[in-house]
Amino acid sequence: MGFLGEYIRTVYKSVASLLKGMKMTGYYFTHHKEIITQEYPDNRDTLILPERFRGEVVMPHTESNEHRCTGCTACELACPNGTIKIITKFEVSPEGKKKKAIDTFIYHLELCTMCNLCIVACPTDAIKMAQSFEHSVYKRADLTKVLNKPGSKLMEGVE
């Protein structure tokens, strides 16, 4: 008799534990407002990413096509993957002084791991992280970018 009682008790406990779990599943099944899934490609217009989100490195330019990069290569040295390559040139000012300036700021997005070390290293805040994250392209070469716009100049007063 003891065995039978134990058996019935086990069955009762088992069924109770299963129903407990099913109760919760049922709750979420009938409470649709708890759904938190985002439908990504459709919500593109309303999708707001945090401002610190690391999507890719960009170089902000002003309206008069000026940037803040002096070509000191601090970011190039800070980068662990060789993502950044800066080619510099010497510009001669009207007074005849030679000054170092950037010719091309090459950024290899395909090598970048978004570690943020270049942004931290930059002494003049010339580069920053953008929030764009849809980086897929058809050709690998499209991922190698030149960040300074053609004809851009160093902003006045940035040393």
Partner: peptide, 8 residues
């Protein structure tokens, strides 16, 4: 409730 107490 969902998993820990579940008999299976």
């Amino acid at each position: 409730e969902l998993v820990t107490g579940n008999i299976i």
